[in-house]
């Protein structure tokens, strides 16, 4: 009750939802493990050109497909290329697609859904009809159109996938915002005369973060598989470059003779998804002050 004022204030400085969330995240072992794994994968992806043991494109047809050995930890593929190297390079593409496309979806989807849900009425109707119309558009055609107009590039691939994935995000966010908008604390904020952008930023978005984070972690694998599908159609990554999705789909074709070609890229993808899920769950709990303290 009579704590010296300075102590309280000191503890108070910098205390925000995010700072608190970080403290809580640090206490969540599983989430922290997820964070380490994801960080490790990203670092490896960035450093790949310097640390990869072999070249991703140099073929060695004499060697052919060999199972894992000391020289080739993950074995080699049918062209004698080192699988570890290819998984590392593939990870660069897959992680970049996963992170960038999901971020694009996140930014557009959250902004769009928040505005539609909060403003409501006719604006909401128009904005959501646009989403419906885009949903109805077969996304392959949409992406092919983009490619035709802007030419093939990896960056465009990221944007194109993001531009498809934000639709669901917008719907989820809108639904969330619709209920939050009618909460009394939002009305209280309005009665204080706070501006709409301020209310959205401080009161609406932080309270819809739970589902957003969960959906974002679900979007990452979706996006990675979408990239594999597009690459398979010749719209994405071109050989000899590869991605986890492509490695898996090739691996699946030959899994009876050379199972390691499926197992290792599959493991890489699964580990990433597990880690992301742990991290996502941890983030969701960390951002909810109600989720048990300590």
């Amino acid at each position: 009750m009579s704590e010296p004022q300075s102590i309280i204030i000191e503890a108070e400085k910098g205390t925000s939802l995010w700072a608190d969330a970080w403290v809580r995240l640090k206490n969540n072992k599983l989430a922290l493990f997820g964070l380490y794994v994801v960080s490790f994968l990203i670092v490896v992806a960035i450093l790949t050109p310097w640390i990869a043991p072999y070249s991703y494109e140099a073929q060695n047809l004499d060697l052919g497909a060999t199972p894992p050995s000391w020289a080739h930890w993950f074995g080699t593929d049918l062209f004698g290329r080192d699988l570890l190297t290819r998984v590392m390079y593939g990870g660069r593409i897959s992680l970049a697609v996963g992170i960038l496309a999901t971020s694009v979806a996140l930014v557009i989807g959250v902004a769009w859904g928040t505005v539609a849900g909060y403003v409501g009425g006719r604006t909401d109707a128009v904005m959501m009809r646009i989403v419906d119309a885009l949903y109805a558009l077969p996304f392959i055609i949409f992406i092919i159109l983009l490619m035709v107009v802007f030419g093939k590039s990896i960056l465009l691939l990221f944007l194109a996938i993001g531009a498809v994935e934000w639709l669901t995000m917008a719907r989820i966010v809108r639904g969330q915002v619709l209920t939050i908008r009618n909460q009394e604390y939002v009305e209280a904020a309005r009665s204080m005369g706070l501006s709409t952008p301020h209310i959205l930023r401080k009161h609406v978005v932080p309270n819809s973060l739970g589902p957003i984070i969960v959906y974002a972690t679900l979007t990452v694998p979706q996006v990675m598989l979408l990239e594999a599908f597009l690459s398979f159609l010749g719209l994405g990554i071109q050989p000899p470059m590869s991605s986890w999705g492509l490695l898996i789909s090739y691996g699946a074709e030959v899994m009876e003779d050379t199972p390691w070609l499926l197992i290792f890229p599959g493991l890489a993808l699964s580990i990433t998804l597990f880690a992301l899920n742990f991290l996502g769950d941890g983030l969701r709990d960390a951002l909810d002050p109600k989720a048990s303290k300590d």
């Binding site: 939802l17 009394e184 604390y185 209280a188 932080p206 309270n207 909810d288 002050p289």
Partner: peptide, 15 residues
Amino acid sequence: QMIFQDPYASLNPRM
């Protein structure tokens, strides 16, 4: 200003 009925709903749970 306004004081609301339900003190469980009128405070932002994340602040």
